[in-house]
């Protein structure tokens, strides 16, 4: 069975939506590089990275709604809002929801420890602790949009997005929900930057694919025409992917949710081709091969 991709969007350092992503893919504007401070024996070290441009959140949410949401959750909420904000409450209630993440609430876990170290264990923040669960972004989306269907978070580094695609297909085939909202989201924990820096890795501001990156992509999956995706070993016109397959990391940076960006790039590419039938294989190490096609 194929799944139809009824909508998709991305958010990166270049901004929200397909135009921003297409710009990064095709015109390669200079990467908007931010810096992340990590602690070192000699003080702090500034590491260039790609910070997601979340300025559009104000278009969807009042500031009060996001007071307790961490960056991982804000990325997920922004992506979800862009895809389902216009849906009726009934349609949103019936949605299935899967969040795929490499790090989940890693940063918030460290923030919680900061509160325990700063004020003593007895003064650790319950408010922060309540957001340390890795399904916090999923919960924020469910609460914000009234989603009541099956919901799930996967956190297994680069395998999260391919795993989420497989489970979304299982849900749709089973008839659990008419559509699945698949949200891939990751921020960049400072400790991760420290780890990569200690390993001596190079972060080149001129080469975005070397920079740790925040961001994500979301897909509304269901039935119907347009883009469709299925597991298949059938011949393809092009290969996109990670771990050896041609990648577009220059347009989103280094992230464990890269497979979601590759799928978005494939959607964009097939949209821009004349006629039907262009097929793009999506290949991720240790995972089934997916085939994206565009019809009509």
């Amino acid at each position: 069975m194929s799944m139809a991709i009824r909508g998709w969007t991305t958010v990166t350092a270049w901004g929200l939506g397909r135009e921003a992503f297409a710009g990064a893919l095709e015109r390669r504007p200079p990467p908007p590089v931010s810096s992340l401070e990590v602690r070192e024996a000699s003080g702090s070290l500034s590491i260039p990275f790609l910070k997601a441009d979340l300025s559009a959140v104000k278009d969807f949410f009042p500031p009060r709604a996001l007071r307790r949401v961490d960056p991982f959750g804000k990325i997920a909420l922004l992506l979800a809002a862009a895809l389902v904000k216009e849906r009726s409450p009934g349609e949103r209630e019936a949605l299935g929801l899967i969040v795929a993440t490499g790090f989940g609430s890693f940063s918030t876990n460290m923030e919680f420890l900061d509160t325990a170290f700063a004020g003593g264990h007895a003064a650790a923040s319950p408010m922060v602790f309540s957001s340390t669960v890795h399904n916090s972004a999923m919960a924020a989306c469910a609460i914000q949009f009234g989603i009541r269907g099956p919901s799930l978070t996967l956190s297994m580094f680069e395998h999260s997005v391919p795993g989420a695609l497989l489970l979304a297909q299982a849900w749709l085939e089973r008839g659990l929900c008419p559509e699945v909202l698949l949200v891939a989201s990751d921020d960049v924990p400072a400790l991760t930057a420290y780890f990569h820096a200690r390993k001596g890795e190079v972060f080149d501001p001129e080469r975005p694919e070397t920079l740790l990156a925040e961001g994500g992509a979301a897909f509304l999956l269901g039935s119907g025409g347009g883009h469709s995706i299925c597991r298949s070993a059938a011949p393809a016109d092009a290969r996109y992917g990670t771990g050896g397959a041609p990648s577009h990391a220059y347009a989103y940076g280094r992230t464990y949710v890269a497979p979601a960006f590759e799928l978005a790039a494939a959607c964009l590419e097939t949209d821009q081709r004349e006629g039907a039938g262009r097929r793009i294989a999506l290949e991720f190490p240790g995972q089934p091969r997916w085939l994206l096609t565009r019809s009509g």
Binding site: G104, V133, L152, L154, G163, G286
Partner: peptide
């Protein structure tokens, strides 16, 4: 051996 892995984090 080759397996399809999932780490489910639903609290």
């Amino acid at each position: 051996v080759p397996v399809l892995p999932f780490t489910v984090v639903n609290a």
